Simulated assay, not measured.
Amino acid sequence: MVSDTVQIDRPVIGIVGSQGAFGRWLQQFFSRRMGLQVIGRDPHGDTALSEEALVEAADVLIFSAPIRITPELIRHYVQVAAGAERGKLWMDLTSIKLAPVEALLESQAEVVGLHPMCAPPKISTLRGRPLVVCPARLDRWQGWLQAFLQASEAQCRTVEPGQHDRIMALVQGLSHASHMLQGAVLTQLAPELGGMAAISELGTIGHALDLTVTRRVLGGNPDIYTDIQFDNPHVLEVLKHLQRQLDGLAEAVGRGDDAARRQVRKHWLVDSARTFGREDLQEGSHAFERLGYLLEDLAEPRYLSVFLPEDRPGSLRALLSAFEDCGVNLDSIHSSRNPEGELHFRLGVSRDCEADRLHAVASAIEKAGIGRVVAGLVSDRTG
């Protein structure tokens, strides 16, 4: 039976790894979005609670720790709990699933493995992001779990842990490795050509998009990307496949004859295209074009970037009216959030727009209290 001290309707949430990026995001989500009490422990500055006190007080315990230590960390907490976890819910937030879920199952708690397919977002939910859910042992907590997943606004996908890890070897392992290798090649060859700036000046849209992902990988937490390569047991075989394909392509290009050209065309282009199918390829081409349009918009030099302090219906209309009143025609509108989660609009204007007129728009926006101009042509005047 579930202990009388376990609260399923309004549980106390415990986070192991509360000072990590996702640990901090989870604290905000559960306290603000779901109105729940959140406690935690982390060796990096959050040790007010002992491990024993955390296990005792938390009705839902979530492990949000580096991949390489998560399974053994869970097993350590199983020993600390010594049965006190019975009737509670334990979950993990890790990029691999089989090893952590197997460790969780050594406890007496109900068990769910989770993998958000994104970095901690700048907004308060996982809206639109895929979230892998591996319900390994679930009974009384089923209803609360569904309420939590609904509140997250994520696109939930229920997957068996082993299948998840095999797929992640391709989704993460292969993708990250490809960009790590590109980064290493660029490091070796770009300096003799004038550096990355000189290369980017001649880049295609495809190059720009590909380089965006490479920079994302290289600019992220190196420990995370290292752990994904080493701690998913299926990645090594994927890397061997990648190496064989790269060796084959290099050998064919090295031969350079007509037969080699036919081989490259058939094996690495025509045959691979069949894997995706005609409709999928067309959709990919269309998505590529859309991203290209976005890059073109963001490269336009005449724009204003405006922070709207009130994210409510009518805010955008008031902002657009400032451009209309000053007779400035818009070429593009894009919204995004900065690292602090503030909503920004980037409004590109016609190239024939005079600088003084754009300065007038910025002044009108700030004088009316519509928003704050944070970047663009007039950023030097608006502060």
Rank of each mutant, 00 (worst) to 15 (best):
G383L: 02
W268Y: 15
R290S: 12
Q7R: 15
L126S: 04
C353L: 00
E56R: 14
L347Y: 08
A375W: 13
K97A: 05
H241P: 00
R33E: 12
V38C: 11
D139T: 10
V111G: 05
V101L: 03
C134P: 04
H234C: 09
V16E: 03
V235G: 06
G17I: 04
L145D: 07
E85G: 06
S175E: 11
L98W: 05
L54H: 03
V185W: 03
A169F: 09
R33I: 13
C134Q: 04
A273C: 10
S272D: 14
E110G: 04
V6R: 03
M168C: 10
V171P: 01
A190W: 00
P71G: 05
C134T: 13
L145F: 04
Q243I: 07
A154F: 06
Q245G: 11
D231T: 10
R255E: 04
R274C: 00
E300C: 13
L211W: 13
G314K: 06
L269D: 04
V80W: 10
R290P: 00
L316R: 04
S285F: 15
Y303V: 06
G248D: 14
Q229A: 08
F148S: 02
L304S: 05
I67C: 13
L358G: 06
F22S: 12
P161E: 05
Y225A: 09
M91T: 02
E354W: 05
F22R: 09
L377M: 05
T47N: 10
S124E: 14
A147F: 00
V264C: 07
R312K: 12
A136P: 01
R255Y: 00
V133M: 03
D165H: 07
H344K: 12
P309N: 08
G376C: 08
V306Q: 01
I15Y: 01
V328H: 07
I8Q: 08
Q155F: 08
G292C: 08
P339D: 09
I67W: 12
K122L: 13
M168N: 03
G206S: 13
P66N: 08
I199Y: 13
L93M: 15
L145Q: 07
R140V: 01
D59H: 05
S31Y: 00
E110Q: 15
M91H: 02
T212Q: 09
V132W: 02
A364D: 10
L218C: 03
L202Q: 12
S107D: 01
E51W: 00
S124N: 11
E310R: 15
L193V: 06
A81N: 05
G206L: 09
I13E: 02
E289Q: 15
P66F: 06
S64I: 04
V349C: 08
F288A: 14
P161W: 04
S64A: 15
V185Y: 12
T214L: 11
S321K: 14
V374I: 05
A322E: 06
L294V: 10
D257R: 09
Q79T: 12
M1Y: 09
V213Y: 14
V238I: 11
Q182V: 12
A21M: 12
V55Y: 00
V80Q: 06
K266R: 15
L330P: 12
V78W: 03
A169S: 08
